[in-house]
Every structure is written in C-alpha cells, then in structure tokens.
C-alpha cells in the first residue's frame, strides 16, 4: 500500500494551516441555519450551557480578536489531527 505523496501531504498541510489560521478572519458571524431557525421560531432561549471549555466559541482569553481565532483554529486542527492519527495508528493492521 503506497502512502499519499509527500508533496500532496505538504500541500495539504499548507492548505489546512492557512484555513485554520485565517478562516476565522473571513468567516461570517451571522447565525448558522439552526441558530437562525431557533430565533425565527422562538426556541433559542432554551439553549443551556452544561459545561465550560478552555476556549469557548473559538476564542483565547487575553488575546486580541484577530489572533485569538487563529490560535484557536491552529490548536483545534492540531488536536483533531493528532487524535485521528493516534486512533488510526492504534487500529492499523500489524505488519
């Protein structure tokens, strides 16, 4: 089984880092489909918070807004990528 081209992996990582770091700058702040419907139909008030997170709403406390979203994006992408890699590595066929 041939792994992905090194070049394709490098290009992919550059694209992912660009989206993770810059995505929050260009993202629309309008409500998403579900939030919009919840507001229109009047049930948005039912939303409750049952836990706290270190970076709520993709913001890092103490950082200016532009930097905050980029840090959150990079940290999140790194954590998810790492989790998926570890899961895959643990399950991969023993050769």
């Amino acid at each position: 089984m041939i792994p992905l081209d090194r070049r394709a992996i490098a290009v992919g990582i550059v694209i992912i880092v660009a989206i993770a770091a810059g995505g929050s700058l260009v993202a629309s702040s309008s409500p998403d489909g579900l939030e919009r419907v919840a507001t229109d139909l009047g049930f948005e008030g039912r939303a409750a918070t049952s836990h706290t997170s270190p970076m709520p709403d993709y913001t890092v406390a103490g950082l200016p807004p532009t930097l905050s979203g980029a840090v959150a994006g990079l940290v999140g992408a790194g954590v998810v990528g790492g989790l998926a890699l570890v899961a895959g590595r643990l399950l991969a066929k023993r050769t």
Binding site: I16, I19, L83, L85, K93, T95
Partner: peptide, 17 residues
C-alpha cells in the same frame, strides 16, 4: 490500512478548520 492513517489525521484537521 497504513495508508489511511495520515489521511485520517489530515482530513480531521481539515474538517475542523
């Protein structure tokens, strides 16, 4: 397959971003 492992990591990071 071993080849799926880097893809899982890359796609996970991409989907999150």
């Amino acid at each position: 397959a071993d080849a799926a492992v880097p893809r899982m990591g890359m796609l996970g990071a991409f989907v999150f971003a």
